[in-house]
Write a protein that binds this DNA or RNA. Structure first.
Length: 467
RNA sequence: GCCCCCAUCGUCUAGUGGCCUAGGACACCACCCUUUCAAGGUGGCGGCACGGGUUCGAAUCCCGUUGGGGGUGCCA
């Protein structure tokens, strides 16, 4: 019999898997790994009206993207809450027989009417002693005892709830199906969960669940409620308002390691002055006791910064491989793409992007038949007095001779000196003629890769356009 | 309304009574480097919400105020 801790992550499949859930999962995962424990995935699919199988798959895929999946021996699941319904109902009846629960036939409207009369919020325990036997239209409610319930929380310490502030909550709906509070506890007992690490929004539920644990004759788990993630308005991240879907970040070319690292620094920090650290260091150092108590803003700018760091840390081959999916649906005709040419440019692109999805726009001028000319860039650079001259003279200069970025650069440098200008100035019209933009990868390397014929063609096209 | 949680630069954090003239990171600004843009380097801006205690000494402990957040479903 092992006493290794059992952590669990219990999302409900009611929408895109979002970054808040990802962080909670990561916290559980890190803890399970360090303690030699287990990470149990349980899909809480008891809300039939909002559930959908594709969301379930989305959760599994997203967790796998974060490195949490069944290929690891410390991963267990997924379990599906809906499959345990019989267990939940049995537990409910046990609570009824023990006197911990009672039936009630009041509708929501009736409860509201009563609370209006008494001036008190919520359900007032009207059916507590009416001795209803259950049946259609009746819900089973938990009989909240007198006294206090103290939740021992690993991040917050002891939290004391006066039981009189907790109403007799519903265990079984009038259609007989179990509610979250009950199902969640029964499953945790069944799966021998020893540690519950979840978002702070569940803290008010905890005394209720702890009472169920007690009434069912089991010792409650070690609780830990971590702060929620918020948006700029400091409101809890919402699927409707905020960009929170993990999938979306993946599509944009955020690297999983960057996402993992960033998420872990929300509410916690590794020792030392560096936030960008290997996963193993996080596993070694992460402690619930060190988690911050206040909500953290999910800052995309900082995520991007982390991602840029991770992108630059990739080997050239890793970078090229990582770009592949983003190159697949690029704006150029597929047959014009060349992996070899991309490989030549890739190292120059690597330090210039923050997310992988920016890569196509950095190299599209190579693979497009004609560069897409940015009109602002055009007017800004082609209006100068020397524009036509530099274009014409440069085209002449490079029409013969060696073809590499050094000679290509030397040619322009000579012209620039002869005309008493700066290279920063004179390269601009050429860059726009070649790439359509004022910014991009280093010019002469780009030209080298483009090739002499195409370069000359674009230079002359620009000269013609200026007129 | 009621219950609960929280409070260090704009943001994420370090800090657990003296190493704090409060450290790092993102963002921002300046300079350097430089073929554009990045990257890199150097520097700068900027914070302990407020008021009372406790203490020789408080960002750190206590109380209050204010301000935020979460919950308050026959959702999870």
């Amino acid at each position: 019999m092992s006493d290794a801790p059992r952590y669990r992550f219990a999302p409900s499949p009611t929408g895109f898997f979002h970054v808040g859930g990802a962080r909670t999962a990561l916290y559980n995962w890190a803890l399970a790994l360090r303690t030699g424990g287990t990470f149990v995935l349980r899909i809480e699919d008891t809300d039939e009206s909002r559930n959908s199988p594709e969301w379930t798959q989305g959760i599994i895929d997203a967790l796998s993207w974060l490195g949490i999946d069944s290929t690891h021996p410390q991963f267990e699941g997924p379990y599906f809450q809906s499959q345990n319904a019989a267990l939940h109902v049995a537990a409910a009846h046990k609570l009824f027989e023990q006197g911990n629960a009672y039936w009630c036939d009041l509708t929501a409207e009736q409860i509201q009417a009563r609370s209006k009369e008494t001036g008190k919020q919520g359900y007032d325990g009207y059916s507590r002693d009416r001795g209803l036997a259950g049946g259609p239209g009746q819900v089973l409610r938990f009989r909240v005892p007198e006294g206090h319930t103290v939740v021992q929380d690993l991040v917050r310490g002891a939290v004391d709830f006066a039981n009189e502030t907790i109403e007799d909550f519903v265990l079984l709906r009038s259609n007989g199906s179990p509610m979250f509070l009950l199902a969640n506890v029964v499953d945790d007992i069944e799966m021998k969960v020893s540690n519950v690490v979840r978002a702070e929004e569940h803290l008010p539920n905890t005394p209720k669940q702890q009472m169920i644990w007690d009434a069912l004759g089991h010792t409650p788990p070690a609780w830990a409620h971590v702060p929620v993630l918020v948006n700029e308005q400091r409101k809890k991240l919402s699927k409707r308002r905020d960009k929170v879907a993990l999938e979306q970040y993946r599509e944009e070319g955020i690297l999983p390691d960057a996402m993992i690292n960033y998420l872990m620094t929300l509410g916690w920090a590794p020792a030392g002055d560096t936030e960008i650290v290997p996963w193993q260091k996080i596993v070694d150092e992460f402690r619930l006791e060190d988690v911050n108590h206040s909500p953290a803003f999910f800052d995309i700018k900082k995520l991007n910064s982390f991602n840029g760091d991770y992108v630059r840390a990739m080997s050239p081959d890793e970078f090229i491989a990582g770009c592949a999916p983003h190159l697949a649906d690029a704006p150029w005709p597929a047959e014009r793409f060349s992996a070899d040419i991309f490989a030549k440019l890739a190292p120059l692109v690597q330090t210039r992007v923050v997310t992988l999805s920016e890569v196509p726009a950095m190299v599209d001028f190579i693979f497009l038949e004609d560069p897409v000319i940015d009109e602002d860039a055009w007017t800004k650079t082609m209006g100068s007095e020397f524009a036509v001259n530099v274009l014409r003279d440069y085209a002449d200069a490079i029409s013969a001779g060696e073809w590499n970025h050094d000679t290509l650069k030397n040619s322009l440098e000579s012209w620039t000196e002869a005309n008493e200008l700066k290279l920063g100035k004179t390269q601009a019209p050429i860059r726009v003629a070649i790439t359509g933009r004022t910014v991009g990868p280093p010019l002469f390397e780009s030209i080298e890769v483009l090739g002499r014929d195409e370069t000359l063609r674009r230079l002359h096209a620009a000269i013609t356009r200026i007129g």
